[in-house]
């Protein structure tokens, strides 16, 4: 019943989410000094991450046929995506901890969909550091694109799809913790691993891997295909051009799969109590 209501009125749980998140933000910024320190710290950490890639280019001019600014475009797009997803639903990584400590039982007795509760729990703006840094890198990369209205549109679609894809990956692979509560690191291979992988042009990987990342686990849609369009490059693997428009579709598939697996996970929990 509740699931149906969620589908019919999707803004309902979203409104709950917003209200809960707002209270957490209020609590967080009531200590402005420590909040500022944490945001700056997080920006610094993420900045070092890109510095590493920039240093690579002191030894080379191109990586997999892409120059630094082009890679910055890839980097910014995937960074914003994982940053937004992490900000919105990062707490889902802690689902195993919630099971172990009994917090999940507490949540199950509250009249808010479980996913909304888990994701909004301990909402923090601290993670904005990553989004900010990725945005700076992306803006720096903008001149490499020959901008047209359709490319501006594609850039917006890319950022949204990238966020949705990471949202799906976070939920999908965190669900394993319903079965083995201390396997939280497993999800990292796909979330942070997916982020690291998409910081590089797919041309550095074997063709088979590129195809797997298109049709099996569609991580390539985070930034690779939209960026090919933005850069006006033909597909290096000779794959069809229309793939460059499929990011929203890939995001929809992954998010749907994630929600289904989530529901299975919750069912497993409520039918075994462990």
């Amino acid at each position: 019943m509740a699931d149906l209501a969620t589908l019919v009125r999707p803004w309902h749980p979203l409104a709950r989410y917003g209200e809960i998140a707002r209270l957490w933000i209020r609590a967080e910024i009531s200590y402005p000094a420590s909040f500022a320190m944490l945001v700056v710290g997080s920006m610094l950490i993420n900045a070092l991450d890109f510095v590493g890639i920039a240093i690579m280019f002191s030894s080379i001019d191109q990586l997999g046929g892409f120059e630094l600014r082009e890679i910055a475009l890839l980097y910014g797009a995937t960074g914003i995506g994982i940053g937004v997803a992490d900000t919105l639903i990062g707490s889902v990584e802690r689902i195993g901890e919630y099971v172990r400590t009994g917090r999940l039982d507490q949540m199950l007795t509250k009249p808010v969909p479980l996913l909304v509760q888990v994701c909004s729990d301990r909402f923090t703006l601290r993670r904005l550091g990553r989004i900010t840094q990725a945005t700076v890198v992306l803006v720096w990369a903008l001149p490499v694109v020959d901008w047209t209205p359709s490319r501006v549109g594609m850039a917006l679609v890319m950022v949204l799809s990238s966020s949705a894809l990471f949202f799906g990956l976070f939920v999908l692979f965190s669900c394993i913790q319903f079965w083995t509560t201390d396997a939280n690191e497993f999800a990292n291979a796909f979330t942070y691993g997916g982020n690291t992988l998409t910081q590089y042009p797919l041309t550095i990987f074997p063709r088979e891997l590129a195809i797997a990342l298109t049709v099996v686990l569609p991580i390539a849609f985070v930034n690779w295909y939209p960026c090919l369009y933005l850069l006006g490059r033909p597909d290096p693997f000779g794959l069809p051009e229309w793939l460059q428009f499929c990011s929203p579709l890939a995001a929809a598939v992954v998010v749907t799969a994630a929600l289904l697996v989530w529901r299975t996970g919750v069912r497993h929990y409520t039918s075994t109590g462990s």
């Binding site: 990586l63 690291t196 550095i204 074997p206 891997l209």
Partner: peptide, 12 residues
């Protein structure tokens, strides 16, 4: 992931 990235780097 890093292996492929480094292979590309040392290719260049």
């Amino acid at each position: 992931i890093y292996s492929f990235a480094y292979l590309a780097l040392w290719d260049a």
